[in-house]
Amino acid sequence: MLRIDAAGVHYRHLNEQIRETVRAGETVLVLDNVNGQRYIGTGLESDQVRITIHGVPGNDLAAFMSGPAITVWGNAQDGVSNTMNSGTVVVHGGAGDVLGYGMRGGKLFIRGDVGYRVGIHMKEYKDLVPVLMVGGRAGAFFGEYMAGGRLILLGLDRPAGSPLTGDYLGTGMHGGVIYLRGRPEEHTLGREVKMFDLDEVDWAFLNPLLDEFCRYYDRDPGRLRAAEFRKLVPVSHRPYGLLYTP
């Protein structure tokens, strides 16, 4: 195990140190006093590496990442798991905007609320199915242009009367599934999605993930499942097929 004190270290040096450490064969890294350093884990390729972050990592945490597992003891900022390939990121706090943009594999767990434009253009291919799970609420454009993968929004601990998501939920969605614990307000739904109840296939997929979520954040899975779940799927895989004169 290697501990790195990130206090006052520029991101370029911090990430260089991380990469060199990983190259030297180290698999367990603990970063202390992280305070806004960007690009931690960006482009990192290894299935063995475990990084624990104490503090608040900066934007583009785990961008283009392939394989590593990152745990953040704190909040995260924007762009977590940007175009991520595989691996796991667990954030013990809230996170900012544009999480999981173009994400094509791996898992991202956020304990609390997230900002705008989360899960945009997530996509899947064969056994690469990205999962982005949010414990709290989400801002507008959740799952916009979504082309694949699974977005799960639990809406836990939200003040009474506060909406599950902002507007334009699933706008332009043409693949994948959005699972919602609770009912979104009708006016927030994008035109390209339809709401359904969950079937057995959905639960078979969702159950292990809910258990995983509860393990990370010490929640009671029974109580989590007790609430009403709905799913959003695209009306069409080709929402824009009829825009053109043949």
């Binding site: 899947e124 082309a147 694949g148 332009g172 895989h237 080709r238």
Partner: peptide, 8 residues
């Protein structure tokens, strides 16, 4: 991306 899906 899956075969036959629009690439937007």
């Amino acid at each position: 991306i899956p075969v036959g899906s629009d690439a937007l």
